[in-house]
Amino acid sequence: MQQVFKKSSLLTDTPFHYCPGCTHGIAHRLTAEAIEELGGNQGVIGIAPVGCAVFAYNYFNCDIQQAAHGRAPAVATGIRRVCPDKIIFVYQGDGDLASIGMAETVHAAARGENITVIFINNAIYGMTGGQMAPTTLIGQKSTTSPAGRTAELQGSPIRVSEMLATLDGAAYIARVSLHDLKSVIAAKKAIKKAFDYQVAKKGFSMVEVLSTCPTNWGMSSEASMDYVKNEMTKVYPLGTFKEIGL
């Protein structure tokens, strides 16, 4: 018998600290596998966010710089300017990327920075205990929208992928999900493709990954997966929003 599934060499042996059933772990694994398939970790630099993934430097077996809240694409830009040939990936949650870091995100995409952003959209601030994010669904309860978000009071969810796809600097933008086997396989393909765009030096690439936060959603792992499948994909349709060609 041969081992047909094992941990990627781009992940360390440190156990993830994420809550049971949290799909941050799946997103880490897919990112690591995609980079590994490009060939080794010699030229890889990651940028970790502020958020539950703040300890990503413990988990990825490559150089990682942790950035101030929301500033990961700006840090990645600096690293890119001095390291033109490295593989550079940015890993950010929706609070990090779409609230405090929205300006950095939009401008990095507009400049066509040759980096790959893995954007974890779990519709909430996980690390800080479940406050509303720009991506929180209408009707979704959070500690800062305890009666459920309303468009009148808090505004409507931001569709980051669709928005960034309008920018000329964006080379590849896709939204994927992790709610079942089929979607995880598709997510891996999209993440791989985003890195292919970077290797080909085509500009900014981002994969938005619909993800769960069972703890702050107050749901079981299984119910969280169903919530992504049945509710989140209605507001955040899966698909490729920009693909300029390799």
Binding site: V4, P15, F16, L181
Partner: peptide, 18 residues
């Protein structure tokens, strides 16, 4: 040995042999 379990495990707990 389909590895569906390992693919969905967030904590990379499962090794699969075939």
């Amino acid at each position: 040995g389909c590895a569906a379990c390992a693919t969905m495990c967030p904590d990379v707990v499962i090794d699969v042999y075939r």
